[in-house]
Amino acid sequence: MRNRPLFLKLLSAVIVFGAWEIAGRIPVSYAFPTFLESMSALVTLTLDGTIFTAYAETLKPLVVGLVISSVLGVGLGLWIGLSAKFDWLFSPIFVVMQSAPLAALIPLLVMAYGIGLTSKVFVVCIMAMPVIVLNTSGAVRNTPSSIKEMGRSFLGSDLDIVLKVIIPAASPIIFSGLRLGVSAGFIGAILAELKITPTGVGDIISYSRSIADYPSMYAAIFSIILLAVLFLNLLEKIEHLLFKGNYRGYVSD
């Protein structure tokens, strides 16, 4: 069957959403609305515009934080990857940050920067930055030495080799680092809204929970997960398009 993958994807969605619907009808819990109830709540939220104003609010720290972490993270990563000194100095910090539960810094950020936008941007940054830095520096360090030697033997200057060999060779991994950073940034943005002050989508979630309007709460959560997954999928598609063949083409394949 030619459309088997598509068919199975649909079937899988029907099974999961069907199970949700049935579990909601039993109901397994007073706080478990059916799938259809949640979807109609989502339609209501969309039609009265609530969801758009909420996302305008939610995306602000996310976008600002991601822009800052991308620029700073890729810059730092290149620097670390190219210089043994900076590698020694900075790598340990990001290695520790990568394994550490950085969310624990949130109460501190709130104390230092209050409950406004600054704190939320910071949360997004500390979540997104380590993976961006580590991917970038690792990719730069692992540029195949034979193409670097090639650049040198054909008389490339150091700058030539960085710009024309190392950065293009590292860019697929830098890009996937950015994608992972975006994924972590979403976690941070929502965490900030739930923990620091309920604004945007976090506000819909907290508010509808407090008035026991569970369908709206589930709808908001559904929408943010959907948004994140769609956006990350889009990034992955772009990645495949941009770097088609870039992973391959070495002798080992």
Partner: peptide, 12 residues
């Protein structure tokens, strides 16, 4: 997915 968004569901 941003799994933090699911924590409120788990709480209820």
């Amino acid at each position: 997915a941003p799994l933090t968004a699911l924590v409120p569901v788990l709480m209820v």
